[in-house]
Amino acid sequence: MARDDRAVGVSSFEGQATSAGQASLAGEATGTASASGPHFAAGPPAETGEPLRHPPHGEGDERAGEVSAGGRGRPSRAPPSLSWLLFSRLVFPGIFLASGLAGLLTLREIVAPPLDMPRILSGLERGGSARAEALTQVHEAILDPRYRDLKADPELAESLIRVLETELRQPITGSPEFTVAYRAQLCRLVRELDTPRTVPVLLIAVECRIADTPQLDSPIRRAAAEGVVTALERHGPDCVRSVPGGVAALCRAAKDPVAPVRAAAAAALGHIGGDEVCDLLREMLHDDTDVVRYNAAIALAYAGRGTGLDTLHEFLRSENVRNLADTGSTESVIGDRTCKLLCRALFALDRLCDRSTEERLAVLHPAMEDLCLSRAPEEVRTLAMRVDLKIERFHR
């Protein structure tokens, strides 16, 4: 019996130890312990009557960091910034697309599809629809910077000159408006050719009279006179003087009943110069149409004569020039023409300052200053500044 009692005592002691150990482990797991005896987990603060206590600021983040550092948690990622979203979604794709587009445009400027020149020249000679198709191809190509050499092609120049001569001899058939527009466009196409051989046929077209009224066929004469101006700017006055009756044809065109033709003829005569021509230009200063007067004054200044300075001052103070100076816009037809005429006037004044001692040039000084400080296109402001500096230096 003594052995059994000892066995029961040992068993009872082991049971108490086991219960105490389990209670201790439970207390460690719940974070509560008692000084003696078994450990019991305390209930939540709401059950015990204690107020809720929030952990100090940053304590939770530190614990989360400790968990992450220990490898037992997943690190949190900060959301991307707005600037990065804009750059990655808008700026970077935009840069990529712009670079690709610039590369394609550069490649297009370098690589030009070859032109079938034998077929084009054959179409120009055959006439009819084949000629119209060939002229369309030439017009598109000759204005394309990738085909710069086309303007100096001698075979194309000879073919277009023959076509224009043939068209000028033909009477108007069918719709007169279409025929006039077609031949005027042909004159503008011949004007693009960089050769003085176009001048004789353009001088013939300057006096073209194939319609019942001078107003109807005036686009042909105007386009031809403007083509002569372009040839004079490229090749000098000898390209007209060397043509028999060339100067006389321009003088007759200066008395054309249609004002735009007279204005273009005056611009051409300014490149030729001479006493007889300048006398005619002085008469044109009293023309009823302002654009004719302005072109005559510009032509006189280009020829080194200061007779038209008062008319030039009138042009510089005109409403069209003021609008161009205030807005700087050349999108409209009037704005574009005014800008071109103003550039020609300033260039002629620049030449006049180098060749003349006219004291009346000082009257243009306020107008030059206004243009320098205006919103006019950069080319206009640059020319005005150059002229103004010469006027100030000349009258200092």
Score class of each variant (00 low, 15 high):
D4I: 10
A7P: 09
A7L: 15
G9K: 08
S11E: 07
A20P: 02
A23S: 15
L25Q: 10
T32E: 10
G37Q: 05
A41C: 02
P44V: 02
P44Y: 04
A46G: 02
E50N: 14
R53E: 07
P55W: 13
E59H: 12
V67D: 15
V67L: 12
G71Y: 01
S83F: 12
W84M: 10
R89L: 08
L97Y: 03
A98T: 03
S99R: 01
S99F: 02
G100R: 03
L101Y: 00
L101W: 00
L105V: 01
T106R: 12
T106E: 09
I110E: 14
M117R: 06
I120N: 01
R126S: 15
A132D: 11
L135A: 10
T136F: 05
H139T: 15
A141F: 10
A141R: 03
I142M: 06
D144R: 04
D144M: 05
P145V: 09
L150R: 04
K151W: 11
A152D: 14
D153N: 06
D153W: 05
P154A: 14
E155N: 11
L156W: 02
E165K: 15
T166A: 14
L168R: 05
I172H: 02
T173C: 00
S175K: 13
P176L: 02
E177N: 11
E177K: 10
Y182A: 14
R183Q: 10
A184D: 00
R188I: 12
L189F: 07
R191G: 06
E192P: 01
R197A: 12
Q215R: 15
R222Q: 13
T230E: 13
T230P: 00
G236A: 14
P237K: 12
C239R: 07
C239F: 09
R241C: 10
P244Q: 08
V247D: 05
C251P: 00
R252S: 06
A254V: 09
D256V: 12
P257W: 02
A264Q: 03
A267D: 03
A268W: 01
G270N: 01
G273H: 03
G274K: 04
V277H: 01
V277A: 04
D279S: 15
M284K: 13
L285H: 07
D288T: 08
D288I: 09
N295E: 15
L300I: 00
R305I: 05
R305E: 07
R305Q: 12
T311C: 15
E314T: 07
R317Y: 04
E319P: 03
E331D: 12
D336E: 15
R337T: 11
C339K: 02
A345F: 06
L346H: 04
L346F: 06
L346W: 04
R355D: 07
L364R: 03
H365E: 15
H365I: 07
E369F: 07
D370T: 12
R375W: 08
E379F: 03
V380K: 00
T382F: 08
D388F: 09
R396G: 14
